[in-house]
């Protein structure tokens, strides 16, 4: 009974795998977790999705900073719901990363150790209530500009997470804009607060799109793999063009004397970005780098005993459930009645 050739002879060789992968990407098909993929593609995705997830989690901090001081109950409810969404988005993204064979714990360890990054924007402080609005309008606005194309990313789980996130995030930007509008139409002090926040967040928001195309380390390969769909500069330009009329409607100015409409290009020209500041913040020299990571680390460490307790409890329960009860002779695997409303029986579709 050895007529079948050894399995290895039938399976495709690495070059065939590579061409199947290339063909799938070229045909706009999605790559799914169990498909073969080049190691570098996997590593790029892990790096990018982890960084994205970390950004959601660290990004909770600057806004949560204002939850206890929100100036109206309506604003307070909105802000809690928004920061909660960010935790949720982090969780969706960690799940997507886990389909690539890394664990969330591993990724969190790397975040805490400083070996994986998060978006530099969250290393700036939220000094006034208006900063909550500026983050919603500008930071979330920039994030959405970046994220919408990711809904078509070649990696299925990442694309699906992004669809969910983009759908939920649509309220984030609007609430920020509405918040700034209320300030801009409010008292003199409120108006000044709004303008000050926009002045401080505008340039860091433009930096969120990453270094210019000619200095972007990962761009070309990511575009070829259809992880990325548009260049950093293209997305940045798109964002500026969107923001200029929105700022006018707010009655606020953008802090760039070189910002003007270019008839010929049909787009806005804008001033030079201070890439030195960008690289300093990236290197860890931003106003809040240390604070953000220590808070994250502290929450994780102080929560360790809680996570351990839950694991220990689950282990005890498993042991109790599989222990012979004496009441059912011969049965050692009988399950006690469920205390909860978990679905009973086999899930029939």
């Amino acid at each position: 009974m050895t007529t079948a050739p050894p399995a290895a002879d039938r399976s495709p060789g690495p070059s065939e795998w590579q061409s199947a992968f290339d063909a799938a990407v070229a045909a706009e098909e999605r790559i799914e977790p169990r498909d073969w993929m080049p190691d570098a593609y996997r590593a790029t995705l892990v790096r990018q999705i982890a960084q994205h997830a970390h950004s959601e989690i660290i990004g909770m901090q600057p806004e949560a900073n204002w939850i206890t001081r929100a100036p109206s109950l309506r604003r307070k409810a909105i802000l809690i719901a928004k920061v909660q969404d960010e935790a949720g988005h982090g969780l969706y993204l960690y799940s997507a990363a886990e389909t690539l064979g890394v664990s969330r714990d591993e990724l969190l360890d790397k975040l805490h150790a400083g070996t994986q990054r998060y978006s530099s924007i969250f290393n700036y402080p939220t000094l006034t209530w208006a900063d909550v609005g500026a983050i919603g309008w500008l930071v979330d606005g920039a994030a959405i500009t970046n994220q919408v194309p990711l809904c078509r990313c070649s990696y299925g789980p990442y694309a699906r997470a992004m669809v969910r996130i983009c759908k939920e995030e649509s309220f984030h930007q609007r609430q920020g804009y509405e918040l700034l509008l209320a300030l801009s139409r409010g008292t003199e002090a409120q108006r000044a607060m709004a303008q000050d926040a926009v002045d401080r967040w505008w340039w860091p928001s433009l930096m969120m799109f990453g270094p210019p195309d000619d200095r972007s380390a990962h761009s070309a390969q990511s575009m070829a793999w259809k992880i990325k769909r548009h260049s950093n500069d293209e997305l940045r330009q798109r964002f500026v063009d969107i923001c200029v009329p929105q700022a006018a409607s707010l009655g606020l100015t953008l802090p760039d004397p070189d910002l003007r409409w270019n008839e010929e290009r049909g787009r806005h020209d804008f001033g030079a970005i201070d890439w030195e500041e960008f690289s300093q913040v990236l290197k860890g020299n931003g106003p809040c780098n240390e604070q953000r990571i220590s808070q994250r680390r502290r929450a994780h460490e102080e929560g360790a005993w809680v996570r351990e307790a839950a694991s220990a409890h689950a282990a005890k329960r498993r042991a109790r459930e599989t222990a012979p009860t004496g009441r059912l002779p011969g049965s050692t695997t009988g399950r006690p009645a469920d205390r909860t409303a978990a679905p009973k029986g086999a899930p029939a579709s």
Binding site: L91, S95, R104, R164, A314
Partner: peptide, 10 residues
């Protein structure tokens, strides 16, 4: 999607 939890109830 997926998530982490110590047991089925959680």
């Amino acid at each position: 999607g997926s998530l982490h939890a110590p047991d089925a109830e959680m």
